[in-house]
């Protein structure tokens, strides 16, 4: 319950700060660099393997059932755009970035730095949460796009080398429609908003020294990953109903 209240407060304070255009431009750019650029290698390598594994499994199934590969590339790209790109970006951000946020804010909370901000008229949500919210949303979108591209090309390599599917055949956009793109973008933005919101709330609720910070970090990664998956199911369902 305390977590829900904290998330609600953070959300309303963030929106209020947004209305007043108090975005903290320099800090936001720093956070975009921290969450986006610094996650590129991690997301890139992970998505390369996801692409290779996904295409290998899909091609093996097609080989047994059809056997015909002309739709492999198009199906892969559609799945990556709608599903795997955004959700993997969300989950990887929860692991790499969310934990860092929970640990940093948790440490500040248990060492009275957050109270010191309040005493200094500095709104901790405006200074700590808002830049992270928007930076992570931007980063999530970018990472989903880059991750999808890398996974698609790594999958193409597996298709070519393992199943002799020519890149020209694999590289097909015919299944991907505007609705897939919109769904992918929506998911990336929502996950990019959820991860810092939940992680920062866990940090603010940390109590009891370094042990409390450890608990907050674990809670942040578990909860934000879980919520990302639930949101993914909801957005997919809503998308299907609307289309």
């Amino acid at each position: 319950m305390a977590l829900l209240i904290t998330i609600g407060q953070m959300l309303s304070l963030s929106l209020w700060a947004l209305v007043r255009m108090r975005l903290g431009g320099r800090e936001m750019l720093r956070q975009v660099y921290e969450t986006g650029n610094r996650s590129l290698l991690f997301v890139g390598i992970t998505m390369a393997f996801i692409g290779m594994i996904g295409v290998y499994e899909l091609a093996s199934t097609m080989e047994a059932v059809l056997p015909e590969y002309s739709t492999l590339g198009a199906a892969t790209l559609q799945g990556l755009t709608r599903e795997m790109g955004p959700i993997m970006a969300g989950l990887l951000l929860a692991t790499r970035v969310g934990t860092g946020m929970a640990a940093e804010i948790g440490s500040m909370q248990v060492s009275d730095q957050v109270d010191a901000m309040k005493l200094s008229s500095v709104d901790p949500v405006e200074l700590l949460v808002l830049p992270r919210l928007f930076a992570t949303s931007v980063a999530s979108l970018g990472l989903a796009a880059v991750g999808t591209t890398i996974a698609f090309f790594s999958g193409m390599c597996v298709a070519w080398l393992g199943f002799s599917i020519l890149p020209d055949t694999f590289m097909s956009l015919r299944f991907v429609v505007t609705a897939d793109l919109v769904m992918g973008i929506c998911k990336a933005l929502v996950f990019g908003f959820t991860v810092p919101l939940v992680s920062c709330a866990c940090g603010f609720l940390a109590t009891g020294g370094s042990e409390g910070v450890g608990r907050a970090t674990t809670r942040a990664v578990v909860l934000s990953s879980f919520i990302v998956i639930v949101e993914d199911a909801l957005i997919t369902y809503i998308g299907e109903v609307l289309s």
Binding site: S111, D112, Q113, K118, S120, S121
Partner: peptide, 21 residues
């Protein structure tokens, strides 16, 4: 909290730990 800001400008509390950022 809003009203407390005015008070905290006049009456400043320095924590036991330095609480620097």
């Amino acid at each position: 909290e809003e009203a407390l800001l005015g008070l905290r400008r006049r009456c400043v509390y320095v924590f036991q730990h330095p609480t620097l950022f």
